[in-house]
Amino acid sequence: MGRITATELSWSVKGHRLLDNIDMAADDGKVVGLLGPNGSGKTTLVRLLAGLRRPDTGTVRYDDTSLHDLSRRLLARRLAVVEQDVYAHNHVSVRQVVELGRTPFRGRFDALTGHDERVVDAALERVDIADKQHQSWHTLSGGEKQRAQLARALAQEPREILLDEPTNHLDIRHQLELLDLLGSLDVTCVVALHDLNLAARYCDHVVILDHGQVVAAGSPETVLTPDLIVAVYGVSVLVDREPTTGASGSPT
């Protein structure tokens, strides 16, 4: 109920191989971090997993169903995607943004049902932004926008959520709050991150990408070694395991 499997995924643009033979899996209810330097293919992999780009080769499966056997609409009823881009061109309210999450469940001319309203309410509460629901989207701070986007994703009642660098532009407190929230959800999360500390602290499993290839995968403790970080990021670090945060999961 919520397992994502990618097998031998490859993708090229104009002869440049951006992803090369990627194998990865996210188990039910786990938080899986996609790590790697800029340009390593994190965003591309998220798009392929979401079915937004078609891989040249390889397959993505949700539980036992191949992505291409699912219609866009059916996929959107179990998979939500939170992107980096949070610019809205029109003056929608926060609640209207979250209501977009009900799109895959609504007919073309259907009004929101009582159930839809309750799901939206619960999603707004879950990310703690219900008090701002009637404000214009443009009045929110960067952190609030990310939380509202997550509420929009939750309104899809997903089994899996893919997030592309959701902590970009957030201050440290909001980064921690957002990842805490992800960890507390009963949803499989695949999250592209560039912050190794955050990944070490919150992810159950990490996948390290470099030049479009998986160079390591496993639990943060086993994977995030000084040697690997030097090899991938080109910087030497001191890995210091704090007793309280070395283990994955949320501190609260």
């Binding site: 937004l52 992107e83 929608v92 799109t103």
Partner: peptide, 12 residues
């Protein structure tokens, strides 16, 4: 509202 990829991810 949030672009074409976002619309596709909503099942459009």
């Amino acid at each position: 509202t949030f672009g074409w990829d976002s619309a596709a991810a909503l099942g459009i």
